[in-house]
Nucleic acid binder design. Structure first.
Lengths: 132, 132
DNA sequence: CTGAATCCCTGCCGATACTG
DNA sequence: CAGTATCGGCAGGGATTCAG
């Protein structure tokens, strides 16, 4: 039983949602992009793919990321079922963030995004411009 | 010569760009997300994955998409090397849009995004809510 | 038919300050 | 240590209008 909704190599799935004519949250692609949406999101996920982290560890790993955006992202990823919050009793408060199984499955997704972006970088402006 | 930058199954590539601490345009993931960035973008790509289209055909396929955003998206996808513009002489002006080879390689990327979003839809609000 | 230009409104995100 | 509250600047995108 193919409860996997995919299988077409050149086209897109035969799911009705593959034929929507407007950006709807029902579309699986939109769901994924919504989970990864916003600045810093993929970097937070990357950090957590390497292992669970405390809030302060995330801040240390991404120094330019502000508190507000970090907690925004963690909340967003929590809503998306990507990140789990593990609070421990006692003082000072210690909280660990970890990917859920669903969150770990973002690994291949980020890999696909990486692969495409790493492949054949465009000569953006000029000819033979050694862009860096 | 492994000019493919990937290979780690559970982690991310050993490319230095995998260790950036801030959202930089150099990161391949950011490159891909930038190409797909913005509302309607993935739907435009989906239409073109099905075959080349005229401007008016894209408008017809995505009726709620405004001219401004459509031409924005086509320009953005052109910059990203995803879409090619094929203008033909004569009157009335006829232009066809088609994916480049690079653009066609977005198929697997969208597939990965679809797969993740289609997998284990979250019981967002209530228990056993048969969302459909 | 194929777009580009303008206007305006909304939502994001960064900085700062404050709380449990 | 682990966040929330508030404000302001800026870019995204929708409707409309104009041009090639």
């Amino acid at each position: 039983m193919t409860h996997r909704t995919v299988g077409h190599p050149a086209g897109l799935p035969d799911d009705p949602r593959a034929n929507v004519t407007a950006p709807t949250p029902d579309c699986p692609v939109e769901i994924t992009l919504a989970a990864l949406h916003g600045r810093w999101t993929t970097l937070v996920v990357r950090e957590l793919l390497r292992g669970d982290r405390a809030y302060s560890e995330l801040r240390a790993a991404l120094p330019a990321l502000s508190d507000k955006v970090l907690s925004d992202r963690l909340a967003q990823l929590g809503e998306a079922g990507v990140v789990e919050r593990d609070r421990r009793p006692g003082w000072p408060p210690r909280v660990r963030y970890a990917l859920t199984p669903r969150g770990r499955r973002l690994g291949p997704v980020l890999q696909a995004l990486w692969d495409w972006g790493a492949d054949t970088p465009p000569a953006t402006t000029g000819p033979g411009a050694a862009v860096r």
